[in-house]
């Protein structure tokens, strides 16, 4: 694995394919520019829209989506606490959005094999933000507007402008996976994974490390 540089690199949003090609698992980045914000309910609606043959409320080509649902803003503030949510819940939806041109996703936690394959196929990237650092990440957000699904409240689709928003590349187009590579360096258990790399859930079939079950 590449040595992780503690000096992050500045990257402008939206992302071009040229930039995506330079990103490797473990890279620290500071993102500046526009990104979209949506989580479970907004994803569900976007996919239902596409399945109905209709256009999405926003054009996702070249864009980055941040899996996040903020706390309400205090008076005088533009947003409340704003850290990432668990990404695996978006696994069912992300490949379809990458097919629409989505270039980046920001969240926390593991992705499915299907998502990692789609990341390679569509030349996209999965970035990790620090879960539970919502107060700190909030201070990187300069502008917020709801662009669709206002009725969903905290889950509405938003467009935000960020400055020096810190993320780490988790899954890159070359198959790199920070979780697998980083953890293997510090793992002392002799026989590999206790039982595959899967989110917790009822065991439904034998688990292979390459094929985590979906919830």
């Amino acid at each position: 694995m590449k040595t992780i540089s503690m000096i992050p690199r500045s990257v402008q949003l939206p992302l071009s394919e040229d930039v995506v090609e330079t990103l490797h698992a473990g890279d620290g980045l500071l993102l500046t520019g526009v990104m979209y914000v949506g989580r479970d309910a907004a994803h569900k609606r976007m996919i239902e829209t596409l399945e109905a043959g209709e256009k999405l409320p926003v054009d996702l080509k070249g864009q980055v989506i941040y899996f996040m649902g903020p706390t309400p803003a205090r008076p005088g503030k533009i947003i409340g606490s704003a850290g990432p949510t668990s990404s695996y819940r978006m696994d069912a939806y992300s490949p379809r959005l990458m097919a629409e041109g989505l270039k980046g996703m920001i969240g926390k936690g593991m992705r499915s094999r299907e998502v990692k394959e789609a990341i390679r196929q569509y030349k996209a990237v999965y970035l990790g933000a620090i879960g539970g650092a919502g107060a700190l990440l909030s201070s990187c957000i300069r502008k917020v507007e709801v662009v669709a699904y206002d009725d969903l409240g905290a889950e509405a689709l938003r467009r935000i402008v960020v400055q020096d928003f810190p993320v780490t590349v988790v899954n890159d187009i070359y198959g790199g996976d920070l979780y697998e590579e980083g953890q293997s360096q510090y793992r002392s258990t002799p026989t590999g994974r206790e039982s595959g790399r899967s989110p917790c859930g009822p065991p439904r079939r034998p688990i292979s490390p390459r094929h985590p079950p979906r919830i």
């Binding site: 996040m68 606490s81 620090i130 650092a133 919502g134 107060a135 700190l136 810190p166």
Partner: peptide
């Protein structure tokens, strides 16, 4: 380090530590 900084920011500004309250 960032989690400790986050705790300081939350404490100072009375903004939730995490958006999942």
């Amino acid at each position: 380090v960032q989690l400790l900084e986050n705790a300081e920011a939350a404490d100072r500004d009375e903004i939730p530590l995490c958006q999942d309250t």
